[in-house]
């Protein structure tokens, strides 16, 4: 795609003159200001403007607009995501279920140079819902990004550029029924895939089981098969330890 005001969609764009993207709460404009020099500007709903000058060794600039993990706004502090279900899911003894839950995303702008992709900018299209939460007690809990998540019926039930949908494969290996009202997991390990203005995450397997004598919710990633484009990871990740969730 080239030199245009586009209806927003993810992808790789070659810019030779100017390019605009109008997204919820954010407007992006890339302009060629002189030979081999481009300017990048993003204006958010509060009127704040982020500007950058991008020297290029070519006449055109190639960028990738892709979804990224919602870990960066207001600041990168954790890799963990806390999805708090609006409606808890009840699993009776030995039951299994596949559900879809909404998960927040942020937007990333990358400069593409051959196979290398450099992070240029990131932002949230719904900053007021981008919050932190604590899983556990204040003295030993884990800081997470917190999101009030709706349980939905399919991958299609999401708000473009604001959130996406993740499949959760639930299983109860315990001897009694239990409600699951949240999952906490390191979201940077889940790959994001995009196509047009849609995106989706790898699935999660969440198994209620016994580890020694303790009942836990064991959460693991399940890679999905898809022909959608894999979104590039955004910058660095924070070192973390694996956790086992308690059963409610």
């Amino acid at each position: 795609m080239d030199d245009s005001t586009t209806s927003p969609s993810f992808g790789v764009f070659d810019i030779s003159d100017s390019f605009e993207l109008n997204l919820p709460n954010n407007a992006i404009r890339l302009t060629k200001i002189s030979e081999n020099v481009f300017s990048y500007a993003r204006k958010d709903s509060s009127g704040n403007i982020t500007e950058k000058i991008i020297p290029s060794d070519k006449d055109t600039l190639r960028i990738e607009f892709a979804p990224i993990d919602a870990l960066n706004y207001p600041a990168k502090r954790t890799n963990f995501m806390y999805l708090d279900f609006e409606t808890p899911v009840f699993l009776s003894e030995s039951a299994a279920a596949k559900i879809f839950v909404q998960c927040p995303i942020e937007m990333g702008i990358f400069i593409v140079n051959g196979t290398k992709k450099d992070s240029l900018d990131w932002f949230s299209c719904e900053p007021e819902k981008s919050r932190f939460g604590l899983y556990g007690s204040p003295d030993s809990g884990i800081l997470c990004k917190y999101y009030k998540s709706h349980v939905v019926n399919s991958y299609d039930e999401h708000e473009s550029f604001v959130n996406t949908v993740m499949q959760l494969n639930l299983q109860n290996q315990l001897g009694s029924g239990h409600s699951i009202n949240k999952v906490v997991f390191p979201i940077n390990e889940n790959k994001l895939y995009y196509k047009d203005n849609h995106c989706k995450y790898d699935s999660l397997n969440a198994v209620l089981k016994k580890k020694l004598t303790v009942e836990v919710l064991d959460v693991e990633i399940q890679t999905i098969e898809t022909d959608w484009t894999e979104a590039p990871p955004f910058e660095f990740s924070i070192p973390y330890k694996r956790i086992d969730m308690d059963v409610d």
Binding site: Y73, P74, Y82, D84, R131, F132, G133, L134, Y146
Partner: peptide
């Protein structure tokens, strides 16, 4: 105040 936790 985006840094204020939603939980607690």
């Amino acid at each position: 105040m985006p840094f204020v936790l939603s939980l607690p």
